[in-house]
Structure formats: C-alpha cells, structure tokens
Design a protein around this nucleic acid. Structure first.
Lengths: 337, 337
DNA sequence: GCAATCTCTTTAATCGTTATCATAATCAAA
DNA sequence: TTTGATTATGATAACGATTAAAGAGATTGC
C-alpha cells in the first residue's frame, strides 16, 4: 500500500500538498499541482490508511449497531427473520453518508460500550437493548445514541427513540374487530414489557372505548419460541372457545397460532378470527392471508440511522420519532354482525 | 480517554513497562510492577486506542462480511429473512475470537475491496458475491477470503468455499417423490446459476437414475419477488395439471406457490405435491406443513468464520467444505403408488 | 574486585495522516 | 522601493500505541 509520504517523495512535493489535494482544499493548491497529484493518485490507486487518519483526527467513521441477544438462542433478535431488513436499512443509509457499520450482537451492554470506546465509534444505534439498567452504562459514553423500539422512560430522557405508535396500531386493529361485531377478544403475547406492553395497552383502550370490559383472563400467554411452545399452544387452544377473535402481538405468533388451530381442526376465520402485527411474509403467504397492522421495518433502520447522522452533524432531533402504521385487511377476520 | 503515556507518567515509569504489562509479557516486568500497573489500569478503566494500535501493528482485527445486494430491492440478500441467522453465526464466532465484524451490503465488489483495503480488514467473508468477474478484483487483495455458496469454478481455485451439497439434497428429495410414486415432476426456480443450478442438477440426476426423461418443459420459471411475480404464478398454475409434484428451489418459492395454488382451489397434496429446500419458518408454519430439505444456515456462518480464523492463524484449510442436509418429511407429498 | 549475566526500565523511532505554522514567491498599491 | 496582502508550498509536531535497542542496577562467578 502506497502512502502519502511516498507519493510526495515521488512527486517531489510535500505531504501537506498531497494531503490538501486529497481533501479538496483547492484554495491552498495551484490548479496545475492539483491535476498532477490527482492523476498520480489515480495511477497508483491510493487508498488512505484509515487507522492513521482516525488517529490523527480522533474519529472513527464507524457507527455501531447493537442488537439484543440472549443466551437463550430462541429469544434472540438476530434470529428474527425480519431484523435483516432493519440492518439493511441502517447499512445503506450510513454507507451513503461515508460511514461504516459495526454490528454487535450481545445482551451485555457494558461489553458493547467497552468495544465502542475502544473503537472510538462515532455513534450508536441500540435495537431492543436499552433497559433502565443499560442507561447508566450508556450515559458515560458521551457520543450520540439512537434507540429503536425502546419504551424505557429513563432512556427517553437521554436518547432519541425511533419506533412505532404501537398503541395506536393495536388500537386500530382491535377496533376493526369490534366494528366487525366481535366483543369477546383475546390478546396473545409472551410478555408484557416494552413494545408488547404498548400493544397490549392499545388493545385495552379499544376495548374500553367500546364499553367492553378487559379481564386478565383475556390475556393468553404464549411461550417464546422454545421447547415449551407446543405445550402453551395446547393450553391456549383449549381457551379459544371463550373468544371470537384473537389479537396477536406479532405476525409470527399469529401464524404459529393458526398452524396450531388448523392442527386441531379449528377454522380461521369461521371458528375464530385472528389478527397479527408487523405485516411480514409469514402472514402474507399464509392461507387464509393474515389481517394485520403494517409497519415498515426497513424504514425504522433508515430513520434511526438518519437521525444519528443528524446528531453527528450537530443538528437537534426530536426525542421521539414515531413511524406510521396502517391496517392491512385480508382474510382472517369474520364479520359476525 | 486515558493514554498509556499518561498512565506511565502518573506511575512514574515508562510506556514500555505499561505496554508490556498490558500485553502480558511477564518475563520483562517484575511481579511487583505488574501488580501496580494492573491495579491502576483497572482503576482508570483503560481502553486502548485501537487506531493507534492497529497503525503500529498493521492490522485491524476486523473481519468483513459482504452480502450481495442488487439495486433491485426485491432480489437482495439482506431482504431474505433468513440471512440474519447467518450474520448472527459469523458475528458470534468472530467476536469470541476477539475480532469485530464490519458488514457490507453491496453488489459492487470493487467498492467493497476498496473499503477493505482502507480499513486494513484482516479477512473477508463473501456471501453470494463471487462471480468470475469478482475474482480478478479479489485476487489483488492479499488477505484470506472465504466464500459462502459460491459455485464459481475460478473462485474455488483461489478461495475456500463453504456451502451445502445442494445437488445431493435436491437429489434426495426428488428421489423421495419418486419413491412415493411420482414420475411427472416439475422443477421451479427463478434462475439457473450457482446454487439454483446445483439444485436443478440434483433433481435431473434423480430423474435420470429413475429412468425418467427430463424435458425443458419440466422447468417452471418463476419471477423474483417483484411486481411480475403474480403474472408468472398465474402462468405456472396453468401448467400444473401436467405434473403430480413440484420440486421448488427454496421454501420461499414453495410457500409462494402454495398460496397461489390455494387461491385457485388447487389442493396440496391432494391435487399436487410440493416440496421445498431450506427448511425455514415459512414451511414449518404452513399448513399442510412443507416437506423439504433441511440446511443449517447459522452453521454456514459459523463454519465460514471458523475457517477464516484458521486461515488467519496460518492453518491450511480445505478448498471446499460441504455441510450436510437432510430430508424433513411433513405433509405436502401424497403417496400415489 | 572485576567482569559477566540477569532483570528491569528507558529512550527513541515508527506506523500514515492531519494540522499548525513558517517560508517563499508573486503582485499590487503607496 | 518598500509594504502588505495573497497564494502556493514546505517543515514538522502531533495522534497513541508498539518495539528494538540501549542503559542501569543487582546478582553471580571466579
């Protein structure tokens, strides 16, 4: 690899001049010299040594994307088929801005922060990572952080969050069921924190606005995608007769549930209506096709990256950015009016 | 951020001594000094400046993972839901070995190589990237490269490839159909290169071994996931009556096809049998559940990363590593014997 | 007692860029 | 002709870590 010093020597000029040309400081260099240097740079296929540059400028041009991962491999964001869209959105955006992406998959926010300071990472995107515990660690880190899908109150005070109006989306689809005559509506999820809690609240609010009382027995708890999921599906299917519709916290669970229902000869939507949230392939190719709430997961990545880039450029950004959702009406809801 | 120089000054010793302790060169430093330095390092929470270190050592501890991406967003590896598993496999493996991962999503191999030399990347994993054209560019790059799912003859001469025995997997599932009495078997794919070609060949070979003649009309061409897919599905469904079974090049296409069949009241497996390849969620949650060929996509990433790490350590590795596949018999094949 | 041998520590060069400041050259105005 | 301003170029010190080579003390052997 050829260096600036070597180029300067071969062209009989100083490193400063070469460096100025590289950085387009045209006012400092004569047109003639600029041409000579540029031609030579092209000829020798010069690539800067980024370590030297970053050392001199105390920067890195790296943006970190940290994804939550638990030891339990089935509850691991990277195992979710649709994160790759988000990753793609982030990568594309930051590469267009001249940055690089370093990907961390870990549950240990302290470990990530250590990496991040080692590499002098310019900014960080946290996806699904930030609990109140992580805030303390992240605060030490003086560079911009943007979170995705965080509902931590503490976190929102300190960092920008990009997410959906999960509550509204969930409200809308529950309300859609109600307009179709459903009143006995269950909610299916595997936990009641973060995004899932917001979706649960939207569901509850729609019930309330329709004058339907929410009982805890309306909540169907499914196990995460692990060995016990079959057992919990079995329990859920036994409860099904109490409802005419089920709001699932995600398309994945909606499709999982529908497979289990079909195995037990319970028909969707004739016997029970099912709706999801996310609008991904899983529901799109299912038959009957899943009625669900659409979100643009790639856009989440793009917007988060854009926001971070703005912060790096010194711009102010809002604390909370909510991307829109909309209903996708397909074939899993029966009109029972 | 505290530097070695500053630490040395505060402890009244030289940077060399501090550096030696950091690098565990215990033979060079007295036990007493080691303890003093280590305690101090912990106290001030020292993190090395990686740019300075890499500059001095001419390395980067970065491994690049390059994924093919076309401008056409529907034929883009990162849009494939199941790449994320592979990414996770790579990341986990290299992080455990003290490396970092930089992700490139691009179709321009020259651009990637430029990034890679800028960053002094220690090694590279190419997924779906390497055509004969890319070889020339990659050869200039003197560091280890491991490919995933490459069938380029030229490429295999130069770089290690990690993949499946796609031919065998495809042979096996076609053969399974034959043992169930099928003889009029179509093959569905969107192209005939690389992995898809290998799978096509396996299918053809199984046909041949069973004394069944392959005709070009057996090949059903589906369009990639873009606007025209519906049109091509329509054409395919009209041809369906000529066959009793269809071997799809992937689970994704199998599921896409089955949705289209259902929309036309053609039943699987009563009217036609369908099999896939990959064994992912899509087929698992479909009803009837998809009979398919299993591959471990995360393992691909892990093995590729392991192989690269071995090469970085100076070990020799085989030119070609093929991971096993196996049949997953579910409910989309009818016995017509 | 003196050189030889170990231990441990220090000095200083190096990696490739950037950035500050100084110098040199050119030109115009006073 | 001096002065000042402008433009082009050069010399050199950072940036933070690694590392070869030299130096300083302490210990040993004869």
């Amino acid at each position: 690899m050829i260096t600036i010093k070597e180029i300067a020597k071969q062209l009989n000029m100083s490193t400063t001049t070469v460096s100025n040309v590289i950085h387009g400081k045209t006012s400092e260099v004569s047109d003639e010299t600029i041409k000579i240097v540029q031609d030579f740079l092209k000829k020798v296929d010069y690539v800067p040594n980024i370590n030297a540059r970053n050392l001199a400028q105390n920067q890195s041009k790296i943006i970190g994307l940290a994804l939550k991962a638990r030891a339990d491999k089935y509850d691991n964001l990277i195992m979710d088929p649709f994160v790759s869209e988000l990753i793609g959105g982030v990568e594309e955006t930051i590469r267009n801005a001249g940055y690089f992406m370093m990907l961390y998959i870990s549950s240990d926010i302290a470990e990530i922060m250590r990496h991040v300071s080692t590499w002098n990472v310019d900014g960080l995107i946290l996806f699904g990572m930030l609990n109140d515990d992580g805030i303390r660690v992240s605060e030490k880190y003086k560079k911009p952080i943007v979170c995705i899908d965080t509902y931590s109150i503490e976190g929102l005070k300190h960092f920008t969050n990009v997410g959906l109006n999960d509550e509204q989306g969930s409200y809308d689809i529950t309300n859609y069921l109600i307009t179709k005559g459903h009143r006995k509506i269950a909610f299916l999820s595997d936990n009641t924190t973060g995004v899932d809690l917001a979706r649960l609240n939207g569901y509850k609010m729609a019930l309330k606005d329709a004058g339907i009382k929410y009982k805890t027995s309306n909540f169907l708890k499914i196990r995460p995608r692990d060995e016990d999921i079959e057992e919990s599906l079995d329990e859920i299917c036994k409860e099904i007769h109490r409802f005419t519709a089920i709001v699932c916290v995600s398309d994945l669970y909606a499709v999982t549930l529908m497979a289990a229902l079909e195995d037990r000869n319970i028909n969707v939507p004739e016997d029970i209506s099912v709706v999801g949230f996310d609008d991904n392939m899983l529901g799109k190719y299912h038959r009957p096709a899943l009625t669900t709430v659409h979100q643009d997961i790639k856009a989440k990545g793009v917007v988060a990256a854009d926001t971070l880039l703005k912060q790096l450029a010194g711009e102010k950004t809002p604390n909370q950015i909510q991307l829109p959702t909309h209903l996708v009406i397909r074939d899993t809801v029966r009109n029972i009016k």
